[in-house]
Nucleic acid binder design. Structure first.
Length: 222
DNA sequence: TTCCAGGCAATAC
DNA sequence: GTATTGCATGGA
């Protein structure tokens, strides 16, 4: 255990939950997103971006239902998506909540992919209305397999309770702290964020379940 | 019934 | 520059 604490937490979560296989995308011929990694074709890239928009402050279960509707309507494609009315798009993604906002945001990112022929940088993504730092990092990490650590509400909660960060620190500060303390490994970044989400859901909830938490012995519980 | 979930932009201090 | 507020569904 000459490792630093960020690597130590990763190893514990990985042995607790196993590989997560993020980001879930819909396999060819199916309608529902599934967890299994691998290279992304254009459809996969677009679906990661769509999911990243839809899951903003929203449970994945509800997002998955919305993605099913989009698949059923054969709309998991930027050109077809911009061709329908924002009202119809909103009604299809209703289950994901904030559907009026998100329908506009989906069209914005669809237009982006068309104009840029599926090329993206983190900087170009955050210029899109509706794409903030977390959504951009999720797309870069899980759609393009580039080295960007994703910081979300669970990351802030878990690591501030561990006593390793200030939960109110700026996004970029927290992101850089992780990137400075972890191996430069895309697979590790992908699994680590997914494991953080899993741990946040199961144990480090708003009301934490500290009994039987695999990090309990190194947690300051603040 | 109330609370919460894989944020973001607009607005107010 | 930092804090607050609106956006909305479905499940626990």
């Amino acid at each position: 255990m000459g490792e630093n604490i960020f690597v130590e937490v990763y190893n514990r979560l990985l042995s607790e939950y196993g590989p997560q296989g993020w980001w879930p995308v819909t396999p060819e011929g199916k309608l529902t997103p599934e967890y299994s990694g691998g290279p992304r074709d254009r459809r996969g890239i677009f679906e990661v971006a769509v999911g990243a928009i839809l899951t903003q402050n929203t449970a994945w279960k509800n997002v998955s239902l919305a993605i099913e509707e989009l698949n059923r309507a054969n709309l998991m494609n930027p050109k077809r998506m911009i061709s329908i009315s924002t009202r119809r798009l909103a009604s299809l993604i209703r289950s994901a909540g904030y559907y009026n906002q998100k329908a506009k945001r989906l069209k914005e990112i669809a237009r982006f992919f068309i104009e840029n022929e599926f090329n993206a940088t983190r900087e170009s993504l955050v210029e899109i209305n509706g794409v903030g730092p977390e959504t951009a990092d999720s797309i870069m990490l899980y759609a393009f397999n580039e080295l960007h650590f994703v910081v979300d509400a669970y990351t802030r909660r878990i690591f501030s309770r561990l006593g390793l960060i200030d939960s109110k620190a700026p996004y970029e500060d927290i992101k850089k702290l992780f990137e400075k303390n972890l191996p430069q490994d895309v697979y590790l970044y992908q699994e680590y964020h997914a494991l953080i989400v899993e741990h946040g859901k199961r144990f480090c909830r708003k009301k934490p379940v500290c009994v039987s938490c695999c990090l309990s012995d190194i947690c300051k519980k603040v």
